[in-house]
Each structure stands twice: as C-alpha cells, then as structure tokens.
Design a protein around this nucleic acid. Structure first.
Ligand SMILES: [Zn+2]
Ligand SMILES: [Zn+2]
Ligand SMILES: [Zn+2]
Ligand SMILES: [Zn+2]
Lengths: 133, 133
DNA sequence: GCATCAACTGAGAATGATTCTCATGTTCGT
DNA sequence: ACGAACATGAGAATCATTCTCAGTTGATGC
C-alpha cells in the first residue's frame, strides 16, 4: 500500500495536462498522438507507463471498451462508475451505492472475499439519439 | 434477427461437448489446448470462430477478464451476471434485478437510450481464501 | 453411390494493443 | 556541479485475436 516516489518530468506533466479539462475517455494511443501533434516529444511507452501508474494510484480513471482497449480520463476521486455514450464518447460519472452493497452482499453470501467488481453502462446520449440510427 | 445457417461439424460438436458439465469460464486458448490434448483435431481459428458464434447467438456466455482476455462458459439462458473466483475460476451465476433497474433508470435519467451494461464480480471463493494469500 | 457447391476448417501470416529492453537522458539530493 | 537512481523512448517482443485462402466436408439432388 505504499506509492512509489514519483519524479516530476516534463512528459508526465504533459500527460496530466492533456487529461485535464476533457470529459471523454481516451486511449493511450490517442493521447500519444495528440501530444505528438501538439509538439510534445514523448514516447508511446511513456504514455502507457504513466497512465497505468496514475490509474494505479487512483489519480485517474480507466475503463475497458468492449473491444478490450483501455481508456483513461481525469475523474473525481473515489470509487464510481460511468455512463458512456458509445457514439460521441460523452461520459457521466454515476454512483451506484445500492449496486455496490448488492455486489458485496452477494459475494459474501457465497463465501467470497477480496471482492472487486466492474460496472459500466453504455448507451446513446440524447444528442446522438435524435440524429438517425 | 436471423441466425446464419449452421452446419453440424465434428469440431463444433467437440467444442459444445467440452463446454458442457463444467462450471468455470475458460479462454479459447485453454479450450483449444484441452481439445487437442484430448485427441481432437481442431484448429485454433475454429475454436475462436465457434465460441464467438455461440456467444453471439446467446447459447453460451462470454466475459472479459481484467486482463482483457475473453472467457466462455455454458450458462443458463437469459440475462444474468457472474461471481467469479479469480484463483480457481469457480463461477456462480447471479441475478441483479435491482442493479438492472438502477442501470436503466440512471441511463434514462440522463437521456440515454439503447442501454447496455457490463457487471461482473471477482473475488476469492471460500476454498481459495483459506490457503494463504 | 456420385456429383456439386457452399459452408467449414486450419496452418500460418497479419494485426493491433500493450509490454519489454536497454542505452541514453533527467531529476534531485548533496 | 556530481553521481546514483529513476525516467525515457525507439524498436523489438509478446500475446490474444483475426484474416487468408486452398483444401475438406456436410447437405442435397440425381
Ligand atoms: Zn470516473
Ligand atoms: Zn462500484
Ligand atoms: Zn452466465
Ligand atoms: Zn445486467
């Protein structure tokens, strides 16, 4: 439970900055491309490493698409889940206290410990529902 | 809503048979290895294709591990979720009616339509909790 | 039984995201 | 400024999954 000391590097600052002020989830590849096209000098491996480290420390959120790709986003702290528009990527943070309790209760009832869960909701937001489909 | 015609081949029968009577989720690779070591002549591509086809038709269940690997299992029909032991793979099917309703209600409240969700619980079962860790 | 043809198969190549390697560049305490 | 420890990044390696496509096989009609 001890975080590794982290040095302040230009690359990590760039990544953190790129995440701020955006409300959509992005992949490491997308982030890397955006940083590059923005003039930053940064390697793909560093983007992967940094995103994972940040996610491990709970400083950013990660979720996996149905295709298995990992997406990252700067989120509010603490455990929460997401409602993601599969068309435009718009994301809403949602709390699921009841579901949390249900998950724990269910797992415990079956004698399971060390319980974790994944819960994501995908749909089409109002803006994207109107325009054909 | 039309399933493509499916021929009855020895390979597909082998896969279906291998899934029956087991209560753990397995990957295409594992299934392929087991079929091979059991003397069956079957290609990896066929295992992947067949598992995906079966899952698409709702005849078997699929879930993705935290590592992004797809696992398959013969399950009861209908929508349900899973409580999976991350050590021994033992799986319990669970219903989450409240969570289902919550997901729909939440998505609707935000104007989302065409809603789907993923919900899986991972933990360690009683048998695996005792033996160190 | 035999011809026919579309569906199925499978070995291996291709793909694509992620991870690893390790020589080189930076950070930070002194 | 100096050096040890940490961070970086280009490219190779990994690994699950998908694709290719020539050869095989199931279903059907005669
Ligand atoms: Zn979040
Ligand atoms: Zn939760
Ligand atoms: Zn199931
Ligand atoms: Zn559900």
């Amino acid at each position: 439970m001890s975080e590794r000391p982290r040095r302040v590097t230009r690359q990590q600052q760039a990544i953190t900055a790129a995440l701020q002020g955006r409300d959509d989830f992005r992949s490491a590849q997308e982030l890397h491309a955006q940083l590059r096209s923005g003039g930053a000098t940064i390697g793909l491996a560093t983007v992967y490493r940094t995103l994972q480290a940040l996610a491990d420390e709970g400083l950013i959120d990660m979720l996996r698409t149905e295709g298995g790709e990992s997406l990252y986003r700067a989120c509010s702290r603490g455990h929460h889940h997401h409602l993601v528009c599969r068309t435009c990527g718009r994301t809403v943070e949602v709390e699921a206290d009841d579901a949390e309790r249900w998950a724990i209760r269910t797992a415990t009832a079956y004698g399971f410990t060390d319980v974790e869960h994944t819960l994501e909701i995908f749909g089409r937001c109002a803006s994207c529902s109107g325009s054909g489909g």
